[in-house]
């Protein structure tokens, strides 16, 4: 795959935009749960914020009654969410991918109702806060692991649904559920059915497969790409069990996600 956003095909740029929309809203929601200052901003006034670009499913985040939720990939807003207070509209998927990847530019804010300003203020603060949390050595490894895992799985769902080059490969991967866990950091269930990968709300009791990281640091190493999954597996930093073709199939999708995540813009990518 091209490493430069400018040279990415239209379809790949759209997939990258979907990934960045989905991971952004998820990371922002998680960061708000973790950071008291952000949480206060989010709860100050209920809002519903949509990120959109032409031709791709929108993503959203809402705050109401002390909870912050996010959604993406064309999913409906969660029950109880307010009607959109603010839409941040990108002119194209490529523009969305550029801006959300830190390459500059800005979406058009379209205020639609009460809470628009709160939403905008919250989003700007949170979007700046997430990279700072990753950089800050004081951020708990467990939190970093959870943020990375959730972002990776959201990205996984988007790339599986959107990247046509994966369609045939995913057809070979058995359907089923996978429990991913790192002690003290996260326990997440996902289901795979055809090309659809979903994060499950409830913990899995009898998953078809399990992927368990030895600790949060191992999860950070794998999800951040600093330690290849196959090597971590051999070294005992991650254990897999159950229906291995399901997990191994998802590794292949994660590899593809990694290619998207490596796309840069401008001179830095050349």
């Amino acid at each position: 795959m091209e490493k430069n956003l400018d040279r990415l095909s239209k379809a790949d740029a759209a997939t990258l935009a979907r990934i960045r929309l989905a991971t952004t809203v998820r990371l922002v929601a998680l960061a708000a749960e973790a950071e008291p200052e952000l949480r206060a901003k989010a709860y100050a006034r209920p809002f519903s914020l949509i990120l959109s670009a032409p031709g791709i499913p929108s993503a959203g985040i809402c705050s109401r009654r002390g909870t912050i939720r996010s959604w993406a990939g064309g999913a409906k807003a969660p029950e109880g969410a307010l009607p959109p207070s603010l839409v941040l509209r990108f002119t194209s998927p490529r523009a969305a991918a550029l801006t959300l990847g830190g390459g500059g530019g800005a979406p058009f804010p379209l205020p639609l109702g009460p809470g628009a300003l709160s939403a905008l203020s919250f989003f700007r603060t949170a979007a700046a806060c997430v990279p700072a949390m990753f950089r800050d050595p004081a951020t708990e490894v467990a939190l970093k692991a959870r943020l990375l895992a959730e972002a990776a799985l959201r990205g996984l769902a988007e790339v599986a649904a959107s990247d046509d080059s994966l369609a045939e490969r995913l057809a070979h991967v058995p359907d089923g559920t996978v429990a991913l866990e790192a002690t003290g950091a996260f326990s997440i269930g996902i289901s795979k059915s055809g090309r659809r990968i979903e994060l499950l709300k409830a913990a899995l009791v009898s998953p078809n497969a399990r992927l368990a990281f030895r600790d949060a640091a191992s999860a950070v190493a794998v999800f951040s790409g600093s330690r290849p999954a196959v090597v971590a597996l051999g070294a005992g930093e991650v254990a897999i069990g159950g229906l291995l073709p399901l997990v191994q199939g998802l590794f292949a999708v994660l590899d593809r996600l990694g290619e998207y995540m490596a796309v840069g813009s401008g001179e830095a990518a050349r």
């Binding site: 090597v231 597996l233 070294a235 897999i240």
Partner: peptide, 20 residues
């Protein structure tokens, strides 16, 4: 793992067994 893709590749890869 530093000099061979995946450390051990193919059907002999640790992930095909029960690593550890």
């Amino acid at each position: 793992a530093k000099v061979i893709p995946g450390g051990i590749y193919g059907s002999k890869a640790p992930g095909f067994l029960v690593p550890g």
